[in-house]
Design a binder for these strands. Structure first.
Lengths: 192, 192
DNA sequence: GTCACGTCTTGTCGCTGTCAAGATATTATT
DNA sequence: AATAATATCTTGACAGCGACAAGACGTGAC
């Protein structure tokens, strides 16, 4: 670690993002406070402004990081799944749900908040990469139309969102292999 | 209308809910302000407290009203659809999406916000009624398992959420009958 | 060694939600 | 009918918030 503290405080931008994710996970997006993030990182309340502009800028940067974690969650499932295209698609869907249930506040930041600026170049790039990954897998697994794409995405996203919000109790009641099997069964229907 | 103005100002509770819905639709839930709602209704900033307790209490009452509109949107589609159980289920799904796209902020209040208190008796009752309606239709249309229920709900909710947030551009690009046909095709896959 | 620049702090502003206290209008009691 | 009790609404205050301005501080360039 040679370039760890290039300036006064260290790599404050990265430290603020870590603090922001923790704050978001604890309080939820509707109680997210920029000043609390600054306090958690041990800096003054105006320090974040220089790195992110304003609070939405900080959430935009956090969302970009969130998309990387989102794709990592899918990659983790794909790595332990069978190699055929259909199994890989199911794995990606399970990773989609994994991310939503283990990091619900971050998931809502990505898909259910108006605060991140999705026109920001970095965020747009990460979001597009996530979409492209799913889309590619749909076509690799035999999908041929926009409807195929929409169906797979809708199923994965719907389960992810409902489980993240604690609404789908019929499935949330299970865990482990049973739960994966149920989610996989639902995902399977999207692509005939 | 004999009992329209039983007290000082009139039926302030109802007037506040109307103002709150307008405010929510214009500003979104993340910029929702109780004081702005009071100003819109022409009362002091502390007037809402007596009727709703606090801001979350007001959003709880608004969410209960939202669930009634949610079911009304489904009923409107069902009324003009064929009578067989499967067509009725598709219609309910189309109504689900209609509500999300025509009232996105209210939809997010119901399904994507931590602010309404879902343990509130009225809200719990309305939410349960909405769930029961969809569940009944799934079984009427031949569904037999928890997976059938989850699949239909996930598809409808996923499309609704993604369209409400403006994410599913492939389908948002269409409108009218074409759009209904695509959404209906996606819904159809959930129940084999 | 001095200057310019990037980084962070302090202080201030208007706005927010909540609480306390008081004013006003309706209803109940006698 | 007069008075008491209660429900409704207003005013005023408080701490916390995001944003902005000004200044202090450390770093690197020349």
């Amino acid at each position: 670690m040679t370039d760890e503290k290039p300036y006064h405080h260290g790599d404050l931008r990265a430290a603020l993002l870590v603090a922001a994710e923790a704050e978001l996970a604890e309080k939820g997006i509707e109680a997210f406070s920029l000043r609390q993030v600054a306090k958690r990182a041990g800096v003054s309340h105006a320090a974040p402004a220089h790195h992110f502009g304003d609070a939405n800028g900080m959430l935009t940067a956090l969302a970009a990081e969130g998309y990387r974690q989102f794709r990592a969650a899918q990659a983790a499932r794909e790595a332990v799944a069978d190699g055929d295209a259909r199994a890989q698609l199911i794995a990606a869907g399970l990773g989609y749900v994994d991310f939503a249930t283990t990091r619900p506040a971050l998931f809502r930041l990505l898909f259910g908040s108006a605060r991140p600026d999705h026109n920001d170049p970095e965020l747009a790039r990460e979001g597009h990469a996530a979409y492209t990954h799913l889309s590619d897998q749909v076509f690799a697994a035999g999908g041929r139309s926009t409807v195929d794409e929409a169906a797979v995405w809708a199923v994965a996203h719907g389960m992810a969102d409902l489980l993240a919000m604690g609404r789908m109790k019929a499935i949330a009641a299970f865990d482990g292999a049973q739960r994966d099997a149920m989610i996989g069964a639902v995902l399977s229907r999207a692509l005939p």
